[in-house]
Design a protein around this nucleic acid. Structure first.
Length: 486
RNA sequence: GGCCCCGUCGUCCAGCGGCCUAGGACGCCGGCCUUUCAAGCCGGUAACGCGGGUUCGAAUCCCGUCGGGGCUACCA
């Protein structure tokens, strides 16, 4: 099988997670069959298309690792992969359709059309059932065009003919001819509609399989009609289940919160997002949740794609992100951590600071879900004095706190060997001597040292911070308690 | 309103007539571990929308019903 699939986003907004999922399935299918994955830009809607969005789409796919073999930027055998470059081609197909009697010029006003739709709806018929070819000669129509009248070009649907096709996901599909409206292929300004441009490109670029969201399922008869009108064989279609938000509605395309960019900025890893998205409507097998791209490529088939819509669950994505973060190569994790911390403290780290950080990182890697959480865990090592998290402070600095802090200072200040084990020994002895449990005795130290209740393990944190700084902070916390004993 | 699609734990997925007293994952709850928070480990919670058929036997097939969704533009 000569597989050529495409993803054809419209640059009218940031790369949407739904589009990314469609792209992902197309990519998996192409890679599985050793086929060609094509990226085309469907920018026929000139009014809403913007170049910045095209850039965002490209970088989104690249970031996700969905590399394309043909298309925008990489080129290919078939000329431009941007529809706005191919307007003449679409126009000439439309003209040809008219000349062959398969399409017609329609001069009717939108008011008139609306009336027809309303009438149809009242009589319980398909809204489009009454919008059919009003007749009239082509010569007459041409005269009116020449005299400056505006017209759209509509397909002249043969209502006696039903359209049947086999959808790879949904099985046999059948649409009656009179359920298909005489849809517009060329707007009155001469620009093509989505249906025309997309069908022409799918033929010209020899696309073998069209896999896209289920929202286009009911447009498929139109695309088949157009394809056949061009004298080409229909493509094979696969309509993927839609992605829903938690509200059970189509994932919002509006505000950028469901954009790939937004997830990227929140600190999600591309591998995690890839893995998670592939689980939306598909599964590797009955019980594997985490798997590699290669495993997915090896197993993928449209026939195994679920028919039901899927709710996008950020909880599970977050969990998966943590799994990937923990599995990340330590050197890679360190690189990410260094830049995150430097951003956070607003300066570059010195050599010895990087060593301290590197020592701490294994402890951090196993307790974060996002790279964006790293800085918060280790910030205390790179600032002169800590900002106390007030909630942590209030929760921890109770009656026993001064005692624990004072005794710790006593024990630690003369400690010659500032090692993890030595620190632990001293502090455990302190707990014993003061008759405090770990929670009461050690938590105040944690807050004094890191500023927060939540931090890497305590003895390691003290060791990493160093004797001078540590004791200074214990004293500072004690002073603060004395000044304000609540 | 019309056409179309879909209906298994709260969510994602497995199940393609007997292996299902329905399996895995997230979440949630409990336990272990433990200096916090996590992680890890162990255990638990929870679903075949409903009604009819077909069949020795149905989550799986058929019909109906109810529910959800998509489309219904000179958007894609």
């Amino acid at each position: 099988m000569n597989v050529r699939v495409r993803i054809a986003p419209s640059p009218t907004g940031l790369l949407h997670i739904g589009n990314a999922r469609s792209a992902l399935f197309n990519w998996l299918f192409a890679r599985h069959h050793g086929g060609v994955f094509i990226l085309r830009i469907d920018d026929t809607d000139q009014a809403r298309s913007e170049r910045q969005y095209e850039d965002d789409i490209l970088s989104g796919f690249s970031w996700l690792g969905l590399d394309w073999d043909e298309g925008i930027e990489v080129g290919g055998l078939h000329g431009s992969y941007r529809q706005s470059d191919r307007l003449d081609r679409y126009r000439s197909v439309a003209t040809d359709l008219v000349e062959r009697g398969l399409a017609y010029y329609d001069f009717r006003s939108s008011e008139e059309l609306d009336r027809l739709r309303t009438t149809a709806q009242k009589s319980g018929r398909a809204p489009a059932a009454l919008i059919r070819n009003p007749g009239g000669s082509l010569d007459e129509a041409r005269r009116r065009i020449d005299s400056g009248e505006k017209a759209v070009v509509r397909m002249d649907i043969d209502v006696s003919k039903s359209i049947e096709f086999v959808d790879l996901v949904r099985g046999e599909m059948r649409f009656e001819g009179d359920a298909v409206d005489d849809f517009v292929v060329l707007r009155s300004d001469g620009s093509p509609t989505y249906h025309l441009a997309s069908s022409v490109d799918d033929v010209d670029y020899e696309i073998s399989h069209v896999a896209r969201g289920e929202d286009l399922l009911s447009s498929t008869p139109k695309h088949i009609i157009l394809t056949e009108a061009m004298g080409a064989a229909p493509r094979t279609y696969a309509h993927l289940p839609l992605l829903f938000g938690p509200d059970g509605k189509k994932l919002s395309k509006r505000h950028g919160d469901n954009s790939v960019k937004a997830y990227r900025e929140q600190g999600f890893l591309p591998d995690a997002l890839f893995n998670y998205m592939s689980l939306l409507g598909w599964s590797l097998d009955a019980d594997t949740t985490i798997f590699t791209r290669d495993e997915a490529v090896a197993a993928f088939d449209f026939g195994d794609v679920s028919k039901n819509p899927a709710v996008f669950d950020t909880e599970k994505l977050s969990w998966m992100n943590g799994m990937y973060l923990r599995a990340m190569d330590p050197a890679e994790f360190e690189a990410q951590a260094v830049s995150a911390v430097e951003d956070d403290v607003g300066r570059d780290l010195e050599g010895d600071e990087r060593a301290v950080l590197a020592e701490m990182l294994p402890l951090v890697q196993e307790r974060v879900k996002f790279t964006s959480e790293i800085a918060g865990q280790v910030r205390f090592l790179f600032v002169g004095e800590v900002d106390y998290d007030e909630r942590s402070w209030n929760k921890t600095m109770k009656a026993d706190a001064p005692r624990a802090l004072a005794a710790s200072i006593d024990g630690l200040q003369d400690l010659g060997d500032w090692s993890i084990s030595a620190i632990e020994r001293v502090l455990r002895a302190m707990l014993e001597a003061e008759d405090l449990n770990a929670r009461k005795g050690l938590q105040p130290i944690r807050v004094a040292i890191t500023g927060s209740n939540v931090s890497p393990p305590l003895f390691e944190s003290l060791a990493a911070l160093g004797a001078e700084q540590s004791i200074g902070r214990l004293r500072a916390a004690l002073d603060r308690l004395d000044a304000d004993p609540d």
